[in-house]
Design a protein around this nucleic acid. Sequence first.
DNA 1: ACTTGACCTGGAGTGCACTCCAGCTCCTAC
DNA 2: GTAGGAGCTGGAGTGCACTCCAGGTCAAGT
Lengths: 132, 132
Amino acid sequence: MTYSIAQAAARSGLSIDTLRYYERIGLVEPPARDSGGRRDYSDEDLGWLAFLTRLRTTGMPIRMMREYAQLRHRGVGSTARRRQILVEHRAGVRERIAELQSCLEVLDYKITNYELVERNLPLAAELSVEAS
Amino acid sequence: MTYSIAQAAARSGLSIDTLRYYERIGLVEPPARDSGGRRDYSDEDLGWLAFLTRLRTTGMPIRMMREYAQLRHRGVGSTARRRQILVEHRAGVRERIAELQSCLEVLDYKITNYELVERNLPLAAELSVEAS
DNA sequence: ACTTGACCTGGAGTGCACTCCAGCTCCTAC
DNA sequence: GTAGGAGCTGGAGTGCACTCCAGGTCAAGT
């Protein structure tokens, strides 16, 4: 199965421009071309794009994704380094989740506060909410 | 208690430049000045900065933080809208956490895969890892 | 008096990750 | 055979959130 750039964009959730951009900067190998010179993405290409979008979603900077891509291209000898990159990245993602969860608590507190103010103490709002 | 800009930066985790930048774009009210014209941050200023950094950490864009800041400045009449902003933002943060957690699973899978390959099947690496 | 260091201002510059554009080439359908 | 639509290239432009800089002021120490 092969896919036009529009189909690849639809399936990966990236824009057509972004697909070409990723190719230009070496994040993805240039896909095959059809007889008219158009890109023909394979299932494997899409699989790699899917993984890349996971890395992006989790905030990996493009230069690191590129390092990973180049290691992958290099083959078996680079698996240790690739694993290391993923392990370090995973640690970062876990930290990020913890950070977000701690911020959630603050949001909860704030929201509860607003609700209390609106329901019971409309005249005390200036004092109890504006302070923070 | 008041704080120099350097102290405010240290306590908020923002840079001095960022503090001045936030003031310029209306995210924070201009703090008091000392006799020499230097910024003198109050505890209340620092409290607001602390909350702002929570919003930033959770990915709220600056233009929305500014809207929130302006509502806050407007006083009691804006609490409903402020609460609404926080509630919507909280929903976004929760989604983001869920998204990260789903990506974590993919990372776990990949890492496990690499570990298996490195320990048991060094010669099969090309087949089992390169595919994705 | 003079050096030092923190702070001031307005404005320019940076890095990231796209996103858009002009002008072109194909293929398909009428 | 021609009009339309998808895709192509190289390069320029965008939005965001800072970050840096030049040239100046001010207060304290020596």
